[in-house]
Computed example of a mutant assay.
Amino acid sequence: MEHQLVVFELENEKYGVDIASVEGIIKMQEITRLPHAPEFIEGITNLRGTIVPVVDLRTRFGLPRKEPTRDTRIVIANMDSSKVGIIVDAVTQVIRVPEDKIEPPPQMSVTINSAFIKNIAKLESELVILLDLGKVLSTEEREALTVMA
């Protein structure tokens, strides 16, 4: 069995999410800030007539903020029954990874975002950290986003 992944970069690290959870990838567009939103919530945006909350994944993972570049993208992901935009530094590729190249994360994971890590994909020249999008936002945060949007 193979896993098809959307791979993106944050601070020179490669992350991947299952392609089935990705609805689309768009260039940065206008985002409306929301008052009293958590720091990692960038705001909301209009995606083809649907209001979508947007999360800055850098801020969520405790990385320094960065001005958007021409490579910055918003990955539109399905979390439970709602859509969420996730800002990433760049989307680099869509790949197929065989099941035997995917391993659970090491028990020694002490990074700030280790709770979000589902698995690690071992490719020939690099490692890709596979995220559990359901854990990037808590249930309460997802509910708050739904109310905001």
Rank of each mutant, 00 (worst) to 15 (best):
L57P: 08
V128F: 07
I26A: 06
D80E: 14
N78T: 02
A90E: 15
N46H: 11
I25G: 02
A144G: 12
G85P: 01
D100F: 12
G62T: 12
F61L: 13
A121L: 11
G16T: 00
R70A: 09
A144T: 14
V91Y: 03
A20D: 03
Q93G: 03
F61I: 05
P64Q: 04
P106T: 11
S81R: 15
E99H: 08
T32N: 04
L5M: 04
V97I: 06
A121H: 10
E42S: 12
I120K: 04
Q93N: 14
P35G: 07
N78W: 01
I51G: 11
T45Y: 08
E2L: 00
A115D: 15
V17I: 14
P38Q: 11
L123W: 11
V55A: 09
N113S: 14
Q29R: 12
Q107E: 14
K83A: 08
G49E: 04
L47M: 06
G134I: 02
K14A: 11
K83W: 06
D80P: 07
N78P: 01
P106C: 09
I76W: 01
V22H: 01
L130D: 00
T69P: 12
S81W: 05
R58Y: 11
R142A: 10
V17Y: 00
I31M: 02
M1W: 03
Y15L: 07
K135P: 05
K135F: 04
I41R: 08
S109F: 07
R33G: 09
I44S: 12
V84C: 07
L34R: 06
D132I: 03
L47Y: 10
T32L: 10
L133Y: 08
G24E: 13
E13W: 12
E2Y: 00
V22W: 01
I129L: 12
R65H: 14
S82P: 02
R65W: 09
K27S: 14
D56G: 03
V97F: 02
L47Q: 04
L34E: 07
F40I: 09
P106R: 07
I51K: 07
E124S: 13
S138I: 10
T92D: 03
L47C: 05
K27L: 11
L10S: 05
S114M: 08
L5K: 00
T59C: 10
H36P: 03
T45R: 04
E143K: 14
L57D: 08
V110W: 08
A144Y: 12
I41K: 07
